[in-house]
Simulated scan of single mutants.
Amino acid sequence: MIDSLGMGGAERMLFNYLQHLDRNRYEPRVCVFRVRDGNPIAAEIERLGVPVDLLPASGIRDFTNVVSLVRYLRSHGIDLVHTQLETVTVHGGIAAKIVGLPTVHTLHTFAYPEATSKEIRRSEVAWFALRNFHDKIIAVSAAVGDYAVAKGRVPPERISVLYNGIDTSSFRRRNEADRAAVRKTFGIPADAALVVTVAVLRREKGIQFLIEAWPDILEAVPNAYYLIVGAGPFESQLKSLATTYKLTDRVLFAGARNDIPEILGGSDLFVLPTLDDVLPTVLAEAMASGLPIVASRVGGVPEMVEPGKNGLLVAPADQTQLAEACVRLLRTPDEALRLGQGGQDVAETRFNVRNQVRKLENIYQELLERTNSS
């Protein structure tokens, strides 16, 4: 069960996992509560042969939806419920308990409620549901698992850390053909040093700090270009900042793209100056492409980037550290190559979706056996 099937990270991850789930052991179907941006992921899931059912819910306080969910679970002979995102945490958990089914929930984010009584109550209701209606909580990073224990008072023995998985085989290793093609596509000189960020353009991604650091980077690496891939609500502010710093010829905005593997494969350095992130999947994708990483030391990022092994970590919102780290890797290609190769190893061993799905199936099996024996 999931709130919606727009283009968010949780929705994409659901598709990745369904793609590799063992159909000899499991017969999945997806229940979605609302439509967001047309629910484009629904069509992709259906192409896998997985049914997608819409059971509309107006909000977290619409408990009439629980009655519909109970009927749904019984009519389809469901054996186990896996919920993702907020509304289904509550409604799906209650309905599963009424029917007597084991329940798993994936916790994707740090749930920071806004300082309003309504948002605080919503957060408290969600934490209550996690504590009382779910048998297992999957945290996508150890950091978010610790947060669930500290903030949500979730029993630590009920939490399992399972990193998001990616299809590492779909990302291209850095190569000269992609290098030339990317530079031609965006009008970048063939010999340019190319730094890339792929992200939803929100203030929290911290891209503004790298733009502010770019004049210092250019002073040390005159042929450096910065390619920002993605769209979002902070895009106009970032473009204005690039104009203010007279960087419009060196800081380029690619918009939303569907050729991310090719862009990563043709770049020299990946930077994510995020201010807070649970486990940014894009870092695993960049690692799978053989790119060295510069990223902020926040949230679950240190669980992905190990200084000296696959990248460098910097303090968030620190233009000086960002500039120094980027310059260091752009001016020492041997170190950058070594860190990029280390990143490929990390992506394969820690974030390969096939390995992660097997671990998820083991969690399912453990809960099913426990339920059947009780």
Rank of each mutant, 00 (worst) to 15 (best):
I2G: 02
S4E: 06
G9F: 00
E11T: 01
Q19C: 11
L21K: 03
E27V: 11
P28E: 05
C31Q: 06
R34W: 02
R36K: 14
R36W: 08
I41H: 00
A42Q: 07
L48V: 08
V50W: 03
V50P: 01
D53R: 13
D62T: 05
N65S: 14
N65P: 01
V66I: 15
V81F: 04
V81Q: 04
T83Q: 03
Q84M: 14
E86Y: 14
V88A: 07
T89G: 09
H91P: 02
I94L: 10
A95P: 02
K97W: 04
V99W: 01
L101E: 07
L101C: 12
T103F: 08
V104M: 06
L107G: 02
K118M: 13
S123H: 11
E124P: 03
F128I: 13
F128M: 14
H134S: 07
D135C: 07
I137L: 11
V144K: 00
A148S: 08
A148F: 00
V149F: 01
R153K: 15
S160G: 08
L162G: 07
S170T: 15
R172W: 09
P189K: 10
T197I: 10
V198S: 05
V198W: 06
A199W: 02
E204V: 14
D216W: 12
I228E: 01
Q237L: 10
A242Q: 04
D249V: 12
D249S: 15
V251Y: 02
I263P: 00
L264Q: 06
G266L: 06
D268G: 09
L272K: 00
L279Q: 00
R297H: 13
E303N: 10
E303I: 07
V305G: 05
E306F: 15
G308A: 11
V314H: 02
A317I: 06
R331D: 10
E335H: 03
L337F: 08
L337P: 01
R350A: 13
N352L: 05
R358A: 13
E361Q: 08
R370S: 12
T371C: 11
N372L: 14
